[in-house]
Amino acid sequence: MALEYIFRRIILLCFMLLLLSIFTFSLSFLFPGDPLTNLSGIQDISFHESDALSEKYKLDQSIPKQFISFITRVAQGDWGISFASQKPIFEHIVALFPATLELALYALLASIVFGIPAGIISAAYYEKWPDKIINTLTLLGYSTPVFWLALLMIMFFCLQLGLLPMSGRVSLLYEIPDITGFILIDILLSDVSYKFNAFIDAIKHLLLPTIVLSTYPTMVLIRFTRDSMLEVLEQNYIKTARAKGLSRSQLIFRHALRNALLPVIKQIGLQFSSLITLAMITEVIFSWPGIGRWLIDSIYQRDFPAIQGGLLAVSTFIILATVTADLIHSVFDPIIRNQTHGKI
């Protein structure tokens, strides 16, 4: 049963990736300009180059063959070159993605650490003052545009108080060799004399973007945990336990919590999609050298191969994260495995 479920999910994953790659492939024809230029990233193609490139990209053959050659090139890591930098796009993505991922992971961690307990407290004190306070805060958090929040933070912490730096990942004073792309890990791995100072500095740089980025997912998790908890607390087995004379904390921690947190696991995986989008805005504001800022810059520069590559990388990552969360959810929750027959 479990194997069948996993099998079905993997089929779905392949199907989603196939559709995504068809969409990305079709972009090179939809974007303005010559498809050959959009695919290869080489501008001003001369006449004799054009023949060789057409051969390579199979543009003289049927669309399905072009698509297969596109998939093969994507798998080999040949994603064309960027108009703006004339460097391979795959290199850019490998260099930039860890920065975004690092930011998104810390933000996700922060939202889990704050969001889930807040949601539980809110449900445990349903319609009493802690619930009301948390509810009001969630509503305010939901309604704050992320870029405005970032600017307010910058105005207050950087310009007014001068406590925190407002851009970049680490001060230019510290030179950190690039190993994994994750700045904190890189600092720990490096053998420089200013390791401690650099670490503190990197944390200071991380603080504001992480707070800004984690606001929205935290609100979502608070709401979701609260609703899920309230739903579980309505069920008959909880009423039975209550009738048997269990205390409130026993009810919540022993009986309700486990079942209420199951759907939250899936929700955490779904957060990646909003995290990556918000990361694009956050990165632009805090000059964070991640893939989001690069993608936005590519749009300004009408760098079509870069847009295409960035979209493919980001969406693939989001799809993988969603399916992984789904699988983890199914490991913990056997009920879900039985009812999924082509349903969402």
Binding site: M16, L19, S273, T277, M280
Partner: peptide
């Protein structure tokens, strides 16, 4: 239809909007 929706749902709305604007 549902699978198609699944794919588009996995791409965040703002990112989708940005792609369409790129077009």
């Amino acid at each position: 239809l549902n699978h198609m929706l699944d794919v588009t749902l996995s791409i965040p709305s703002l990112l989708l909007a940005i792609i369409i604007i790129a077009l």
